[in-house]
């Protein structure tokens, strides 16, 4: 954490932790996989699966759907890889495919807007119990967001993608991204605060 003093208010700013694998050998892997090298493709999948899994998990809200979506993402990647320019970074492209696959899955199940917390199955993707509880709370809160808000907040806050890149991935303007993420952050915070207040109320009742 880095600290910033702003107008007398001490603000600890969380440092950006890149969620993406480091470039370098990945470029070579992409070139080899594009040329039909299956072991290279497998290694590429291994390197990028956590990025796709995590994004799909936050967009879909449960682990089974996230696994199915991740498989579909890599199948699409396999199909479209011959047309991909290996000189470009693969992560924005993968995010785009993941968003498309997840959007298709959610629309097919008519869950994007009609989804409710009750429909979300348990997530349980983190080994540590306290992290699991916080994560499930956030997943339930994410379910209250619109499709665009959810996509923007997942990329920007959960994946640590910059606003500029988020705008490129979602094919919208940066100012629209800022509007979406400000609304989404407020909704997410309100949902989390409401949950904490409800829990505190339960404890008082007991």
């Amino acid at each position: 954490m880095s600290e910033r003093i702003t107008g007398g208010l001490l603000v600890a700013m969380p440092e950006f932790e890149p969620a993406l694998p480091q470039p370098g050998a990945t470029d070579e892997l992409i070139a080899r996989a594009t040329a039909g090298d299956r072991p290279a493709f497998e290694l590429l999948v291994r390197r990028t699966q956590s990025l796709v899994l995590r994004t799909a998990l936050h967009l879909l809200g449960n682990r089974e759907d996230a696994r199915d979506a991740t498989q579909d993402v890599f199948i699409r990647m396999y199909n479209y890889l011959p047309g991909f320019n290996p000189e470009r970074p693969i992560e924005p492209w993968l995010y785009k495919i993941t968003l498309n696959v997840c959007r298709d899955m959610l629309r097919k199940r008519a869950r994007w807007h009609a989804g409710s917390a009750a429909e979300t199955r348990p997530v349980a993707v983190f080994p540590r119990p306290e992290a699991r509880e916080r994560h499930e709370l956030l997943i339930r809160a994410l379910d209250t967001l619109s499709e665009r808000e959810r996509a923007a907040i997942v990329l920007r806050d959960f994946e640590g993608v910059s606003t500029e890149e988020t705008a490129q991935i979602l094919n919208i303007r940066q100012v629209t991204v800022r509007t979406l993420i400000s609304r989404a952050r407020i909704k997410l915070k309100q949902a989390c605060d409401a949950h904490v207040r409800a829990e505190q109320g339960d404890h008082h009742d007991v």
């Binding site: 600890a12 700013m13 998990l57 993707v125 983190f126 959960f158 994946e159 989390c192």
Partner: peptide, 19 residues
């Protein structure tokens, strides 16, 4: 700020291997 820190903390957690 505290809420955002929690979000970042959860996002940085390693995913369960079984997934």
């Amino acid at each position: 700020r505290r809420h955002q820190a929690t979000v970042k903390q959860v996002a940085a957690e390693p995913i369960d291997d079984t997934l």
